[in-house]
Each structure stands twice: as structure tokens, then as C-alpha cells.
Design a protein around this nucleic acid. Sequence first.
DNA 1: ACTTGAAATTTGAACGATCAAACTTTTACA
DNA 2: TGTAAAAGTTTGATCGTTCAAATTTCAAGT
Lengths: 379, 379
Amino acid sequence: MTQLPTVDDVARVANVSRQTVSNVLNSPEIVKATTRGRVEAAIAELGYRPHASARRLRTRQSSTIGVRLDPVTNGISGSVLDRYLHALTELAAERGMRIMLFTATDLDDEIEQYRTLRDGADVDAFVVTATRHADPRIEWLTTERVPFVSFGRPWGADMDAPDHLWVDVDGFAGHYEATRHLIGRGHTRIGYCGWPAGSGTGDERRRGWAVAMNEAFGLDDAALERLTTRTEEGVPQARRLIEKMFAADHDLEALVCVSDSVALGAMMAVNEAGHRSFPVIGFDNTPVAQAVGLSSVEQRLDQVAAATLELLMGATGRRVLPSGEKRPDDEAGAADMGHRLVIPKLVVRRSSHLAPVDETESADAGIAPAGSHHREEMQ
Amino acid sequence: MTQLPTVDDVARVANVSRQTVSNVLNSPEIVKATTRGRVEAAIAELGYRPHASARRLRTRQSSTIGVRLDPVTNGISGSVLDRYLHALTELAAERGMRIMLFTATDLDDEIEQYRTLRDGADVDAFVVTATRHADPRIEWLTTERVPFVSFGRPWGADMDAPDHLWVDVDGFAGHYEATRHLIGRGHTRIGYCGWPAGSGTGDERRRGWAVAMNEAFGLDDAALERLTTRTEEGVPQARRLIEKMFAADHDLEALVCVSDSVALGAMMAVNEAGHRSFPVIGFDNTPVAQAVGLSSVEQRLDQVAAATLELLMGATGRRVLPSGEKRPDDEAGAADMGHRLVIPKLVVRRSSHLAPVDETESADAGIAPAGSHHREEMQ
DNA sequence: ACTTGAAATTTGAACGATCAAACTTTTACA
DNA sequence: TGTAAAAGTTTGATCGTTCAAATTTCAAGT
């Protein structure tokens, strides 16, 4: 009790050598069954647990993934990061990995952190959450061949020939599904309230709506543009804008909105205008959406987390693959991919009223290789 | 380049011994200045960084704090945990500590995790976030003398003679301030919309309102009870309840609500009833509150995080103190405390309308020893 | 019974740092 | 100048594990 048991203690009790104990732990299949049983009994009896640092020192593997937390304002915010971390921690544990957090004050400091964590063998890989265009951190990680995945697609890069591993949520598919849902309920004049053009994320989401509308009603770009408004993120901005929109166009039947904040503003305007049964769908399924009963598109962060690990460690591996390693897809014959796009899920609520009713969720969807989905729908 | 530099490499370049290099890193003051300079130059030249695992193995310190993530539903939810983690990670880094996450499926599994992390020397201490009454995990951690802090006060225990270290947000002070604010603006008939009696957190918050009302207007318990309604957490529930409340009492001028969800429901009812300028104040300052412009009480998670570390490591220490160690207060003469109560901050918005306007924040407040604040106000 | 090779197990060394104690140099003071 | 104490530096051992190679055990084939 005064001292934690070591492999040697276990070995003594089980009447074997250190190494055999080590083998029982790390490659049980090479130890004879009877011996293994004896060792396992000794381990249980002594309550032995391997000393993680000693193992890490010897193996030069930390079995730890470092996750950089964004400065509060940017990137994956609020409960999204929270749920992602939760899923990641859980799934990582199943593969014998742990999650370590870190932050940085500026870019130089951050690269310094990478160095320290890498050289100190504190982590085997990184997850980076808020990436910019031509990000120096990405560059450093890449040239140093440090394994990492970014949550968020690389901006301005060709998606099918990626510079680095990444995971993202498919905003296109999300609002495609949302729009299909509204069309299926008989709506025709479905508007879109987006962010100013040029934000990659916002453009992708709108494209989902646009493609669905084009497929169903054959609307051309000009017609689609007439059904679109754009606003900065924010409830009051959106509210004012939608009020104007109502003043101009009395035929609108429903709205798909680029975010829950925008959707909330829209709902308020809708309410004020006295519309009954005017569906509004947002994006992110934030607590705000839940609270007011707003339909929204939910990112499935468990799948994002699973995809993160799959990229880093392979489908079922228990260690991080060297940077640049081939990552064969599960589906036979599929080409290697350096990324995963997670299809989000529509959560339908009574979003035409402020009062929420019971939640009904749409059918399940899965992960699709990037491109395949989009391009086909685009035809 | 083919191999990371070690202390020996640095020693060779600087023409000193291993140990001197180690000393420069760990106790620079005992090394002669000129030697130190030479060693530091060598470190910089080689880009040397200590191997964390090797150090941990030798020192038997991991410089890591393990944080248990709650199952999604309970405890500190959503962006609160997120912001707490961020602050904790940042402040911990300043003291040379890292944050490691873990989860567990059930209580046994969780204690198993503690064992593994502790015995494996993976972490020096734990932060536990969702504690129940008579929590077996707390019990285990305590009897095993594993250093830990819970975020959330122990239920049913005497606060001034705590079983273990804890940090919490002072709900009393939060709604005391909120109520004072409303009183200062000239309101008299201020109602409270709380959770069903018996929830420790909810009762504390209501007590803040009650004490302020009593001080200002001398209301007795019966009168206070008449100004109180109680509801389960949830927007629609609260909304219906407040509608009823308006039907019964036409003199209400303002409302303090136990949570943002409840407050949001109240705001909706207020809006529907057509009241102009009817202030509502919530609790938690969630994104919902920000989005709709609801006044709320904000937990200051940077202070909670700072307090967490202070309890674990002392005011400025760089290592975790042994469980049970005295933690002298900064204020001279103050008695030791096993906990910290963080005073939250009122964020005033135009919560009488759904449309948010600019945010004005109240004056700053700090951390107070538990009890001192409350008891005095109670007189 | 003898060889052969595979299977199972053991042994010595190493991972990279710090501790504890020994050693050397410098400082202070008679 | 001599010597004791203090300051600065070095040496050998050690933390607990796994690697690599050596050794032993066992089963099969001749």
C-alpha cells in the first residue's frame, strides 16, 4: 500500500518475468493461456495499473490528442465545441486515447505550443478548430509532419486534393434536406435568408437550398436570387430585414435561414406580421432553437468526432498514423480521402409559432464522401 | 534533426553536465549566471525541450489536471462548461499545468477511471463537475486522498465545514444584485419565478431576491410567497405559468427568473400581454439571453477557473498541493477555507422588449468568502 | 532418440529526465 | 596565507516500462 505495484511486483507474484507481464498487457496472444491467466490474476490481486509516463517514455507514444481551444469569439463556438469535445473524449477513450486541451494567445505562441507538446511527447496528434486561409499553423504542422486534423474545411483549397486532413459538417446537405422537407409539405415559395455572399460556410448552405429549389421548380439563378436576402449574423438585423422582405413580397410561404440567430429574427418578424403556420428553419440546432421551438439542422458531433479519429488513426486503429499515411476507406474500392463530410440532421419543430411543441426528428442519415452527394444533386 | 535533443546533448554543447542543464530548467537561481547563459544559449541553439514523460516518470508528477465531462444532460451544461474549460486551460497553462479530459459510462466505471489516471500518474488532481448528494465518487476521491475540486457545492453539507474542496457561483448574490437593480430603477412589485422548492440552486437564487425585497420593503415570508411562482425548467411551461400569473395579478412590475429559459417564457408572456417596459431578468446569460436581449446574471467562469486552481495549487503555486493541505487565504488573518464562491455579474439588456439593444454591463464584483456576504445581508 | 524450428519466456539495455550525494571551486574571515 | 563554510558543479543511481536479443521449452518430423 505504501508503494504502487509495478510490473516487477506482478511478475514476482505470478512467477514470471517482467516482460511476460508486459506481454500480457500489450500482446496477450503471444502468451500461453495458462501463464496469461496466472498473470491476470496477479494483476487483479495487486490492483496493478501500468505507469503511463514510463510507458510513454519507452514507447515514444503519448496516446494523447491535443485539442486547441479557440479564442472564445471565433470558430466553433459554444455548445458545438462542447459536444464535440464530449464525443471526441468518449470515442478516443475507446481506442485508448486521451484528449488534452491547450490554448494560445497568438499565432507564434500557438506554434510554440505545438513544438513543446510535440517535442515533449505530450501528444501524438492535434485537432485544430479554427482555420484561416493560408494558415501558418497548418503550414507548420504540415511541414513538420505532425499528424493533425482540422475541424473545418480548408478555405480556398480544392476539396478533393486536400493539403491536410479535415472534417466538416455538410452545410449543403443540411439545407438541401431542410428545403426538401418544406417542399414535401407542399410549400412552393420558400425564401432564403443568408449571410453576405463570400462566406464559404454560408454559401454552401444556401447552395443546398438553391439546388433543392432548382430541382423541384426549375428556378434559375435570377429567380433564386429574388427569393434570397442576406444579412449579417444577429437577431435584430435579421428581424428588420425580414420585416422589409414581408413588406415587399407577400407570397412567401416559408424561410430557410443560414443560422439559428437569423432564423430567430425571422420568427419574430413572422410573428409580428401575424402569419399563421409560416415555417422557418435555421442551422446548428442551438439551445436557442430548442428553447423557442425552432426547426433547425443539427450537426452530428459524434460523427464528426468519429471521423476525426478515423482520419488520425484509421478505421479501428489504436494508434495515430504517421502524417501522410494512406487512409483506405472502409468501402471497398473507394479511393483514399483526406477528409470526411458529416451529413447533418434536420430537427423538425413547430417553428411557425413561438411556443414549442414535441420534437419530431427526421430519418437518419450518414457520412458521405465529399463531392459524391453534391455533384449528383447538382445535375 | 534525426533525433530530438536531450539534456545530454545540451550539456555537451554548453560544456556542462546533465544536472546543470536540469538545474537551469528547474532551479535557475542556483546556477551561476555565466553558466546559465551558456546553457540557455545551447538550449536555444538546439531547440531543446524537456521530454515531459521522462520528467513525469522521475518526479512522479504529471502536471496535469483531469476534468470529467458530464453526460450531456446533467450538470454544468452547454456553453458554461465550454467557457469554464477555456478559462481553466488558459490559467492552468500559466502555472505549467495541462488539462486532460475524460468521461465515464457509469459510477463504477468512473471510479475505475480515477484509479487508472491516478495510478498511471496521468493526472495530479481532478475536477468533478456534477456532484450528487452522498456521491460515491467524492467519497472515493476523499478516502484515497486524491486531490480534487468539485465545480458545484456539496449538497446537504455544512458549507463552512466542507468535506472537500469546491467552487461554485453565488446564485444568492446574483439575484440579490438583479433585484437591487430593479429596485434602484424604481420598481416595487417585483415577482419571482423559480423552480419547485427543494432544488438547492434554485432556492439560493430565490433567497437573493427575497433578501433584497425584504431589505427594501420589509416584506415578510408570506408576502414574498405571494409574489412567487414556481415551475419546472422549460420555456413553454414558464410561459403558460406567467400568463396565469398576469391573469391573477395585474400590479406586477417586473420579474426575476431562476433561469434564462424560464425568463424567456416569461418574456413571451409579457409580450403577448402587451406590456410595455416590463423588465425580466434571468440567470446564466446563455446565448439565448444574448440573442433575445434578455437581462441576465452571468457566471464569471474565468474566476471560477481561477478559484479552482487556487484551491488545488494555492495562490500562486505551480504544483498541486497534497489532499488535506492547508490553503491559507490571501487576506491576512482570514481562516482557511475549503471553497470559493464566485460572485456573478448582472448583464443589463432591454429585456422588456424582444428586440435587443446595446448591452450595458453593471459594475464589477469579485470573489467573496462564502457566508460573509449572505449573512450580513440577511440582517 | 535426434534434429529442427517454432513458440514461449527471460535477460540486459535503454527511454530522458531528476534525486541524492560527492566533489570542486569560490568566498569570507581570522 | 590558511582554512572553514558556502556556492557551484558533477557523478551514479533510479523512476517503470518496453525493446531487442538471448535463452529455454515444446511439438513435430525424420
